[in-house]
Amino acid sequence: MPQMRPLDPAFPIDRQIAIDTGPLVLVNVFTLDRDDEQIFLRVWQDDAAFMKQQPGFISTQLHRAVGESPTYLNYAVWESSAAFRAAFTHPEFRAKIGAYPSSAVASPHLFQTVAVPGICVA
């Protein structure tokens, strides 16, 4: 099971998923030992396949850090925090995360779009 290290220790994922909002983006940064990368990728693929079947899931993309760093970023879009919460707390998903290598550290955080005049829309 990966260790959980919040991006913002004052407001971890367990508090974030309690807020009803949407749409939202999950950003999850994973660090791990280089020797565990293939295991990590297989487990993440299995998790992503499960999430893809859940109501409210829109999309996901996994990114790997440039160079030698075994750091990954998962970006997933959800219709609502309620949909993400249902998937994230689902017993089948909770069982799946136990397959991650012990070196994995996950830092999940939820985000919403922000409108900036002349630059981007919310």
Rank of each mutant, 00 (worst) to 15 (best):
residue 52 K to Q: 14
residue 43 V to A: 07
residue 10 A to C: 05
residue 84 F to N: 01
residue 118 G to Y: 00
residue 113 T to Q: 13
residue 103 S to C: 05
residue 29 V to P: 00
residue 114 V to L: 15
residue 17 I to C: 01
residue 12 P to S: 07
residue 37 E to K: 10
residue 110 L to T: 02
residue 117 P to G: 03
residue 3 Q to F: 08
residue 63 H to S: 12
residue 9 P to L: 09
residue 17 I to Q: 00
residue 43 V to R: 02
residue 5 R to P: 00
residue 48 A to G: 01
residue 120 C to P: 01
residue 73 L to P: 02
residue 32 L to A: 05
residue 32 L to G: 02
residue 25 V to H: 07
residue 33 D to V: 09
residue 73 L to Q: 11
residue 107 S to E: 03
residue 49 A to V: 10
residue 65 A to Y: 08
residue 46 D to E: 15
residue 3 Q to N: 09
residue 105 V to Q: 00
residue 36 D to G: 06
residue 57 F to T: 01
residue 63 H to V: 13
residue 113 T to M: 11
residue 65 A to V: 10
residue 87 A to I: 03
residue 11 F to Y: 15
residue 110 L to G: 00
residue 29 V to F: 02
residue 62 L to T: 13
residue 88 F to W: 09
residue 36 D to M: 09
residue 3 Q to M: 11
residue 19 I to F: 10
residue 107 S to D: 00
residue 69 S to R: 14
residue 1 M to D: 08
residue 32 L to H: 00
residue 94 R to M: 09
residue 102 S to N: 11
residue 21 T to K: 12
residue 121 V to C: 07
residue 9 P to G: 06
residue 73 L to D: 05
residue 108 P to E: 03
residue 71 T to H: 04
residue 114 V to P: 03
residue 47 D to C: 15
residue 38 Q to P: 02
residue 7 L to C: 08
residue 100 Y to F: 15
residue 74 N to K: 05
residue 97 I to H: 04
residue 37 E to G: 06
residue 19 I to Q: 10
residue 114 V to W: 07
residue 28 N to K: 05
residue 68 E to W: 08
